[in-house]
Amino acid sequence: MGFLSALPGAIALGLIWGLMAIGVYITYKVLDFADLTVDGSICTGGAVCAVLVTAGVNVWVAMLAALLAGAAAGLLTGVFHTLMGIPAILSGILTQLILWSVNLKIMGQANLSVSARTYGVVISQLEAGWAILILFGFVSVIIGLLYWFFGTELGCGIRATGNNPNMSRAQGINVGLNKIIGLMISNALVALAGALLVQYQGFADINMGRGAIVIGLAAVIIGEALVNLICRNFAVRLAGVALGGIIYYIVYQLVIELGMDTDLLKMLSALVVAIFLAIPYWKKRYFSGFHRKKAAKEPPAPPPEGGETAAQEPPAAAPLQGGQSDV
């Protein structure tokens, strides 16, 4: 009973976090950059939106400002990484810490209420049905825009940058700049998700981004698992990620319904994500062990990449490991 009535809320939250996860997908999957900025930038988006809306600014303008603030956060991480040579993970952590202070300054306090009864917000949990519809529109438009963008010359260059930086440089692609652009787009989307979340739940909170990366990764992983086998089209994969967010929140709701201690939920999410991140690694170990045994039985091992036989799949990117610094 309780579960069914909570379902619309779970779907709406899932869509918001699905949007956030699409941002994570761009850095983690497309750019091969484990970006921890998102824990801070989701809150930045929420804070900017909350402050502007409570100051009487039009909610759409407030969301645009949140988007730009997120892009700025991505820019900062990108500069740390490319111009200052700081490893990807650390660059994100540094920005995250900077954003903690910035977010507090933006809000002026740790918690800020944006009640739908007082302010003209776009979505609210008071009307979860509407919220789902509007969020669905948001996610669809953004998937459409990203699909277009990653098909352009610039977008293809960004995909190549994440996929093979050596080749990209040899093709005249500015790898450092492309990473910055990718980080900006990603964090802009994450901040937009933050702005929507604040409206939906009716308040902004300094802790709202804690562990966001884990939820984002969980949605990405669920989405990949769902869609990968059926279709490799980029738009469909992004839709899969959004769906991943929804499934995450439905499961989350179920677990709560079953009487799980909510204090343990973050730990459980993290453990589940850890296991899923380990699967490609275990697979690789298992298969390479298999090859080693086979090779040992055969006379002199042939060169690894030789011949007309299909080359091995490129090694899966080590989980949570960003690229080298550039520029």
């Binding site: 352009t152 610039l154 692609i173």
Partner: peptide, 16 residues
């Protein structure tokens, strides 16, 4: 298509 654009500024025109 990436290689065909080597040395050109990459714009928002279609990648291929």
């Amino acid at each position: 298509a990436l290689a065909y654009r080597r040395g050109k500024v990459r714009s928002l025109m279609p990648g291929i």
